[in-house]
């Protein structure tokens, strides 16, 4: 019976109702947000997509030779050149008259930091590529070092908290504004907590002719210090507190936001994560940083107009709801 069941599971895997470009058997940690995010992206992109992947967790946990978890053509070159590789693939396909979508993927290190120049080039040349950044807010692959995407006051191995420091001293880089300045046709943010919204944005980014950018907030249980079971919970709280604004931009203008009806205090988000645990110790410094993070979230809510009014608690076009029979809206 067990053998039959195994065989039938194997067959079943081949006949799933959605194409999934990222297969089981990868080596991501339990509850990895990025693994989920990458799979959702491939799900929306479909099989006719070529992926260029920057160095990082995603690359390492999916492709330890001789195996690969990818079911779509996939290429990893280096840390800082995924946008250029994707540009080359796109140009190559164009030259050959072949039709396939091109998606570049990178972490926040590969995107906010070392690959920013190549990304800027790709966006400026308006290659028909969707660049997806899985933002887990630090260099996780190398052991949780701070990146320019690490939030203010978060503790990492290179921005630890101590008697003289409250974690990272600097702010999270406002990458979105940099992307917006490129005046590309489409840019958006999404999170693994809202898979329908994420998939919709992937499709939109791929439908649009020209460069598209998608920033996907992807909790890292290991680096953020939360249980793997809470990955979605944490990602959801990032939205509900205003810490991570979910929005869409066309030609640099914000055209849609996922509004928050019931804004929750940032501490609801922070207290689930060990990287912010030093902020919950009784000290004036901790208090200041907590208030600072609250002010940053409030600032997001204000500048992006995140406060919602519709009866849906998150005004999410239903992105957060489920329905009997799996009838997700996207």
């Amino acid at each position: 019976m067990a053998a039959d069941e195994k065989k039938s599971l194997f067959e079943l895997r081949r006949t799933q109702p959605a194409f999934r470009g990222l297969e089981a058997g990868h080596l991501a940690c339990q509850g990895c947000g990025q693994a989920l995010g990458a799979r959702l992206v491939t799900e929306a992109a479909g099989p006719d997509v070529i992926v260029a992947n920057a160095t990082g967790c995603l690359e390492v946990f999916t492709t330890a030779w001789p195996r690969t978890a990818w079911r779509v053509p996939w290429m990893h070159s280096l840390f800082e050149n995924a946008p250029a590789i994707a540009s080359g693939i796109e140009a190559g396909l164009k030259a050959q008259g072949r039709l396939a979508k091109v998606v570049a993927m990178g972490g926040d290190g590969g995107t906010f930091d070392i690959g920013l120049q190549a990304l800027s080039g790709m966006l400026e040349r308006n290659h028909n590529v969707l660049y997806v950044c899985f933002d887990n807010e630090a260099y996780m692959n190398t052991g949780i070092q701070r990146s320019s995407s690490t939030p203010h006051a978060a503790a990492t191995t290179t921005s630890p908290s101590g008697t003289e420091r409250m974690g990272k001293r600097h702010l999270k880089k406002d990458l979105l504004s940099i992307i917006a300045a490129h005046h590309i046709p489409y840019a958006a943010t999404a999170t693994v907590a809202y898979p329908s919204d994420l998939r919709k944005k992937v499709r939109r980014g791929l439908e649009i002719e020209g460069a598209a950018f998608l920033l996907v907030h992807s909790p890292c249980p290991l680096g953020w210090g939360h249980d793997g079971a809470l990955t979605i919970e944490v990602a959801r709280l990032a939205v509900e507190t205003g810490v991570f604004p979910v929005l869409e931009m066309e030609r640099g203008d914000v055209v849609a936001v996922m509004q928050i009806r019931k804004v929750r205090p940032v501490s609801d988000y922070l207290k689930l994560q060990a990287r912010f645990s030093h902020l919950f110790k009784e000290s004036p410094e901790a208090r200041v940083e907590l208030e600072h993070l609250q002010a940053l979230a409030d600032h997001h809510i204000e500048v992006y107009g995140l406060r919602g009014t519709s009866p849906d608690p998150r005004d999410s076009e239903g992105a957060d709801t489920v329905r009997r029979g799996g009838l997700r809206w996207a």
């Binding site: 297969e23 058997g25 999916t62 492709t63 195996r67 690969t68 990818w70 079911r71 779509v72």
Partner: peptide, 10 residues
Amino acid sequence: AHAGSSLGLK
């Protein structure tokens, strides 16, 4: 590596 070969790793 060949597509989906990660299935070999349980």
